[in-house]
Simulated scan of single mutants.
Amino acid sequence: MKLRQIEAFRAIMMTGSMTLAARTLHTSQPQISRLIGQLEGVAQFPLFERNGSKLKPTLDGERFYQEVEKTFAGLSSLESAAAVIRSFGRDRLMLAAMPRLAGGLLARAVARFKLEYPDVLVTIQSGNESNINEWVRSGLCSTGLAMLYGQTPGILVEPVITTNCVAVFPKGHRFALLEKVTPQDFAGERYISFPNTSPVRNQIDKIFNEAQVNPIIVAEASLGSSICALVGAGMGVSLINPIAAIEEATLNNIESRPFTASIPVVIGLLFPLHHPQSRLVRKFAQCAREVMEEELSPLCD
Results as ranks from 00 to 15, higher is better:
residue 70 K to R: 14
residue 208 F to K: 10
residue 48 F to A: 00
residue 31 Q to N: 12
residue 171 K to Q: 06
residue 247 E to F: 11
residue 35 L to F: 12
residue 157 V to G: 05
residue 17 S to H: 08
residue 269 L to Q: 06
residue 232 G to V: 05
residue 148 L to I: 08
residue 195 P to E: 01
residue 161 I to G: 01
residue 77 S to Q: 14
residue 42 V to K: 15
residue 80 S to T: 15
residue 110 V to D: 06
residue 232 G to N: 06
residue 279 R to H: 05
residue 48 F to L: 01
residue 271 F to Y: 14
residue 69 E to H: 12
residue 122 V to L: 09
residue 68 V to C: 13
residue 262 S to Y: 03
residue 73 A to I: 11
residue 295 E to K: 06
residue 270 L to C: 08
residue 86 R to E: 12
residue 175 F to N: 06
residue 228 C to L: 07
residue 176 A to S: 12
residue 287 C to D: 02
residue 192 I to Y: 00
residue 61 G to M: 02
residue 256 S to R: 04
residue 141 C to G: 05
residue 238 S to R: 02
residue 187 A to T: 06
residue 10 R to E: 07
residue 72 F to E: 05
residue 292 M to Y: 02
residue 130 S to F: 12
residue 260 T to H: 02
residue 292 M to D: 04
residue 284 F to Q: 07
residue 207 I to C: 03
residue 297 S to A: 15
residue 102 A to I: 00
residue 237 V to I: 10
residue 154 G to T: 12
residue 261 A to W: 04
residue 266 V to P: 13
residue 118 P to E: 05
residue 112 R to D: 10
residue 32 I to N: 03
residue 71 T to V: 15
residue 268 G to E: 07
residue 79 E to Q: 14
residue 53 S to I: 06
residue 140 L to P: 03
residue 122 V to N: 10
residue 300 C to R: 10
residue 179 E to T: 09
residue 273 L to R: 15
residue 145 L to K: 06
residue 50 R to V: 11
residue 185 D to N: 10
residue 200 V to S: 13
residue 274 H to I: 08
residue 25 L to P: 13
residue 70 K to L: 13
residue 263 I to P: 05
residue 197 T to Y: 09
residue 150 G to S: 15
residue 43 A to V: 08
residue 236 G to T: 02
residue 187 A to E: 14
residue 41 G to H: 10
residue 93 L to C: 02
residue 259 F to Q: 03
residue 266 V to W: 08
residue 90 R to T: 09
residue 251 L to N: 15
residue 250 T to E: 15
residue 47 L to E: 00
residue 246 I to E: 12
residue 84 V to K: 14
residue 24 T to V: 11
residue 192 I to S: 00
residue 267 I to M: 12
residue 136 V to D: 07
residue 217 I to F: 04
residue 40 E to L: 03
residue 43 A to Q: 10
residue 163 T to I: 02
residue 286 Q to L: 08
